[in-house]
């Protein structure tokens, strides 16, 4: 894997409500440059919302977001999102574009690269995820695992400083999960800063540097994986682990 110019991401006291529903209740999350933070917790605990708040797909009601120590809340959110790649549970590839066009679209329209160069860079990214040979087919002709690898290539093409994974393997057939997790592991080992919302406890335990356990919009416990998985302190985390492991 290539070297990444990754950054340090910090969320401070993040709050968000949808009407009376207080989804995030003062979340702190610090991801040191080049490390992987996994976020675990039951459905509806606010994990996916936290990712969307940290790249400002949803603006927080309160709190601050820092990239390399500088607050980004006053920046243009579109520019912030160019620095943070995101991979979704449902892949969300653009079905009307070919695989290589999915990857090169942002390079052409946002980085303003000429068509040939954008294609060349996109092919390079596809090569990294092992799908260069599928460059000119439509996403509909790919398996779920292949789609997710294209989605990862699409996000990586923008040379992001941080990568978000929102349950990236939850929609995949079991036999396809492995390939995507292997790719994510490569990225983590290659020094990418990553925030991984996941139900894959194996990945969380073996690959991530820190684990954050969320429930009902708050961080209940966080720390290195050995502590979270081997010596949980709260009853809520103990209960969650006994349900999923």
């Amino acid at each position: 894997m290539t070297e990444f110019t990754s950054g340090t991401l910090t969320g401070k006291n993040l709050h968000l409500s949808f009407g009376h529903n207080h989804v995030l209740r003062g979340i702190d999350l610090h991801v040191e440059k080049g490390t992987t933070a996994s976020v675990i917790g039951p459905s509806g605990s606010g994990k996916s919302t936290l990712l969307r708040v940290m790249n400002r797909l949803i603006e927080p009601d309160q709190g601050d977001i820092l990239l390399d120590g500088r607050s980004v809340l006053k920046d243009n959110p579109d520019e912030l999102r160019q620095r943070i790649g995101m991979v979704f549970q449902q892949f969300n590839l653009f079905p009307h574009k070919t695989v290589v066009e999915n990857v090169s679209l942002a390079l052409r329209k946002l980085r303003k690269l000429p068509k040939d160069q954008a294609r060349a860079e996109a092919l390079e990214q596809l090569d990294l995820v092992g799908l260069k040979h599928k460059a000119d087919v439509r996403p509909a002709n790919l398996s779920g695992g292949q789609m997710q690898r294209v989605a990862i290539a699409r996000a990586l093409a923008m040379k992001p400083e941080v990568m978000f994974f929102d349950e990236a393997t939850s929609a995949l057939d079991p036999e396809l999960v492995k390939g995507v997790l292997a790719l994510m592991t490569d990225l983590a080992k290659g020094g990418m800063t990553m925030v991984v919302v996941t139900h894959e406890m194996g990945f969380s335990r073996n690959v991530s540097d820190t684990v954050t356990f969320m429930d009902a919009g708050v961080v209940v416990e966080s720390g290195p994986p050995e502590k979270i998985f081997s010596a949980p302190e709260t009853d809520r985390l103990k209960g969650f682990l006994s349900d999923v492991l």
């Binding site: 653009f94 679209l105 942002a106 996000a155």
Partner: peptide, 30 residues
């Protein structure tokens, strides 16, 4: 067009207008 399409496009760094023009509207018209 699924909400995820707009979200994915915005997550790449496209503005709302560009996302509609490049991603959502072409699919909707088809």
């Amino acid at each position: 067009v699924e909400k995820g399409q707009l979200e994915a496009s915005r997550a790449l760094g496209f503005s709302y207008g560009s996302s509609m023009r490049l991603v959502v509207v072409p699919q909707g018209i088809r």
